[in-house]
Write a protein that binds this DNA or RNA. Sequence first.
DNA 1: TATGAATGAGGCTTCATTCAT
DNA 2: AATGAATGAAGCCTCATTCAT
Lengths: 196, 196, 196, 196
Amino acid sequence: MDAKHSVLTAGRRELTKAQNRETILLAARRVFSELGFAAATVRDIIRATPLASGTFYNYFKSKEEVYLALRDQEALALRPKLRQARRSAATTQEFLANSFRAFFWFVAESQDPPDRFRMDSPEVLAGFAELRDDVETAQAKGLFPAVDAGRLSAALTGVAFELAEQVKAGAEVEETTVFATALFLGGLPALPKKRF
Amino acid sequence: MDAKHSVLTAGRRELTKAQNRETILLAARRVFSELGFAAATVRDIIRATPLASGTFYNYFKSKEEVYLALRDQEALALRPKLRQARRSAATTQEFLANSFRAFFWFVAESQDPPDRFRMDSPEVLAGFAELRDDVETAQAKGLFPAVDAGRLSAALTGVAFELAEQVKAGAEVEETTVFATALFLGGLPALPKKRF
Amino acid sequence: MDAKHSVLTAGRRELTKAQNRETILLAARRVFSELGFAAATVRDIIRATPLASGTFYNYFKSKEEVYLALRDQEALALRPKLRQARRSAATTQEFLANSFRAFFWFVAESQDPPDRFRMDSPEVLAGFAELRDDVETAQAKGLFPAVDAGRLSAALTGVAFELAEQVKAGAEVEETTVFATALFLGGLPALPKKRF
Amino acid sequence: MDAKHSVLTAGRRELTKAQNRETILLAARRVFSELGFAAATVRDIIRATPLASGTFYNYFKSKEEVYLALRDQEALALRPKLRQARRSAATTQEFLANSFRAFFWFVAESQDPPDRFRMDSPEVLAGFAELRDDVETAQAKGLFPAVDAGRLSAALTGVAFELAEQVKAGAEVEETTVFATALFLGGLPALPKKRF
DNA sequence: TATGAATGAGGCTTCATTCAT
DNA sequence: AATGAATGAAGCCTCATTCAT
C-alpha cells in the first residue's frame, strides 16, 4: 500500500500503448497453446512478456477477457475466410474443399505446437459457430441433402478438427483437404434423410 | 494398542485400504467431470471424500497420478468393449456401427455435464489409442480400403467425438450411430487410396 | 500451484492448535492497536506472529473475523464486569463509580499504546451496547432521573472513553474515576427531564 | 502553440491551477467521508476528480498530505468559530452552550454518513486541539473552578463527540446542546479541585 | 496408516508513484 | 503544468505437500 519504490525504476518502457496490447495477446496465445486455457495463469502470460504484472490489468481485467479478445482476433482472421469459402461455393465439392482447405491453411500457418488438449483454444472454437448456418443455407441451395444439419455440422467439425492435428504435425494441407472432402462427398448420399 | 485394535479389525483394515483407493478415484472422476481436469485441485478431490488430505498422498503422488489411474480404470471398462466391438466385426458396417454404438452408449451413461471444455477427461480420451491398430487390422482383413490409416482413424475419432457432444446433449444413441456409420460407409469407397 | 517445496521445511511447528488461535488473536490485538483496524492488514497480523501466512486462514477467514473473535473475547472479559458493576449498584454513586472504575481498570491493564485512532478497536466498542439498557433499568429503580437515556448513555460513554485515554497515558484509575463520577453526580439533577 | 493557446486562455490557466487544488480537496473530503480515511486510497480521490492521476502529485505528496491540508481548511472553518464561541463567553453557561452549539451545528451540516468508524476524519478532529488552552483561560477568568483542565477538556470532548453521533443521526442541535450544557453546568461544582 | 494443522510458494489484483509525452 | 500508461511492491488468498501425532 505504501511502497517506497526502488530508485532504479528506469527501462522497460519502449513499447507503445497499442503495441503492448498486441504483446500481451501474442504472449497469451502462446501460453494458451502451451498450457491450455484452463491451466494457464495470468502470471504465465505476464511472464511471457517483457511487461510488468500491473500492466496486464491496464489492458485486460482477467484471463477470460484476453481469451475473448483472442477470439475476436480470430474471428477477424479465420471466420470471414471460412464464411467466404462456404458461401461462394457453387458445388458441394467446392463447399467442402474450400472450407477444409481454408481451415487447414489457417492451422498450418499458426505456430501453435500440436497438442491434443487445445480443444478450448480460441483457434479451434472460433468460426464453428457459423458453420451450421452455412450448412443450412447450402441445403436450401441444394448442395447438401436434407440430412440433420446439426449432425452434419458436428461431423464436419470433428473431421476438420482431428485432421487439423495431423496438419499441425506436418501433414500436407492439400492431401488432407482431398481426404476430408472425399469422405463427405462419398458419405453424404448415404446419410439418413431427416424425418419430418 | 488397546482393545479396539483387536484381531477382529484386521480384515476390515485390509478392506479399508483397498476401498480408500477406490473412494479417491471415484471422487476424482466426479470432480474432473464437474470442474475439468485442469481446474480441479487435489483439495477438491479430498473434499469430495471423507478422508483426510494426508491420506491422499498415501495412494497417489499427485493429481496427474490419479488421472493416470483413472485412465487405467477406463482401459478396463471402455477400451476392451471397443476393441471387442471392432475385432469381432465381420463386416465394415459392423466395425463402424459397433464401435460408434459402444462409444456413444458409454458417453450417454456417463453422467458428465455436456461441457465442451471437459474433453480432456479420461473417459473421452481412453480407448482411442488403439483405434489405429484396429483400423490397420481391419484393412488387412479387407474391411477397409487401403487408405491412410492415420487419417481414417482421425476422421473416425473426430466424428465420434463431436457427435458424442450431441449424445451428451440428449441425442439418441442409435440414431447417432446410424448417422456416423452411414457417413463412413458411404465415404470409404470415395477416399483416395494410399500411395506407395 | 505446483510448488516443488523446499526440502528444508523443518522448524516452526512447536505451538499447538489451541495456542495458535490465541497467538493470532494476540497479534491482531496488538496490530489493531498500533495501526487501527482499517489500516491493519492480514499480513501485518501474520507478520506479528511466528506463523506462516496460510496458517492464518486455518483459523480465520478474514480480518473481520479476527475482529469479531476479539470482540467475543472482550465480551467475555469486560462486559460481564461492567454489567455486574452496574447491576449490583444500590446507589447512583455506586452505579457510576463502579462502572467507570471497572472500565478504567480494564483499560489500564490492557497494554495497548494510547492512540486516538482506536475508536474502532474492540476494546472500546465492547460492552457499550448494554449500557443503555442498564441505564434504563437504573432509571426504573430510581437511581437516575427521567432524562433521555440515549443521551445520558452517550455522555457516559464519551466521558469514559476520553478519560480512558488519560488512563492509558498514565493517569490514576481512582482519581479519574472520582472525577468522572463527580461530574455526573453533580450534573444529573441539572439535566432536562425527558418530555412525554 | 496553436490558436487554442492564445493569450485569452492565460487567465483561465491561473484559475485552473488554483481550482485543481480545491477540486482535489473537495473530492478527498467526500471520499474520506464515504470510505473513512484509512480505507480511502489516492486512486479513490483521483477517481472522484476529472483530473489525471499524475496531477494529484503536483499538489500533494500523499494521502496524508491531503489530510493535513483538509485539517488546515477545517482550521479555517470550524476552529475559529469554536475559539470565538469560547473566548467571547462571559459566563460559564455561555462558554459551554456556545461551544457545543457551534460543534453540533457544524456536524449537522456536514453530510457525513453517520458512521462510528469515520471519527478519524478531519472534520471531527479539527478544533479540539485548542480546547484545553481555552479551558485554562476560562479558569483564569473564573468561569471554571480550579479542576484538572486536562480531565475537564477530555470530558467535554467526549460528551461532544458522542452526542455528535446522535446529532448526525438526526437529533436536534438545540436540545442536544441544552443537555450537554446542563450536564457540565451541574457537574462542574461537584468536581474535585485540583491539588497543588 | 490415517489424520489434519502448518507451511510457504505462487496465483490474482490493486495500489502509490514515476515519467515520457 | 497535465496526462495517463507503466511499474512492481505488496495485499489477499488458495494450493500442494509435509509431518507430528
